[in-house]
């Protein structure tokens, strides 16, 4: 069995999924799966997933609703919310619903995001 950590990325923008997957795969520390539809993603997120990077504004389902569902199903998976909207209300709401962190798009840098993930998953 692989000791790599499992990361799921959910965003309706395929190009964002692509660049995140390419960047985070470079170090070979993570198994990465991406979904552009949160409803499909939902059925694949279980206790084996260490971290979910989750967009908020998606046409099929709001990321914060998916966050709630993930929390109901298991308490092992950590969630980082990512969104182009940074209002304090959203930050507070995502923390209340159990997100461990909150990042805004455009990301400061991919490297900083990776460091943040490494820390969170103690890699």
């Amino acid at each position: 069995m692989s000791s790599k950590k499992n990361i799921v990325i959910v965003d309706d923008e395929k190009d964002i999924l692509d660049i995140l997957q390419r960047f985070l795969s470079r170090s070979e520390k993570y198994n990465i799966k991406t979904y552009d539809n949160p409803i499909t993603a939902k059925s694949h997120i279980n206790e084996s997933i260490d971290l979910v990077l989750l967009d908020v504004m998606m046409p099929q389902m709001n990321g914060l609703d998916l966050l709630e569902k993930i929390q109901e199903n298991n308490n092992k998976t950590k969630v980082i919310i990512m969104t182009a909207y940074s209002t304090l209300d959203k930050v507070l709401e995502s923390h209340r619903k159990g997100a461990v962190d909150y990042i805004t798009k455009p990301f400061g840098s991919l490297k900083a995001l990776e460091t943040q993930i490494d820390k969170l998953l103690s890699v």
Partner: peptide, 8 residues
Amino acid sequence: TPLTYIKG
């Protein structure tokens, strides 16, 4: 949104 992946 596009800026996010362009920057990346």
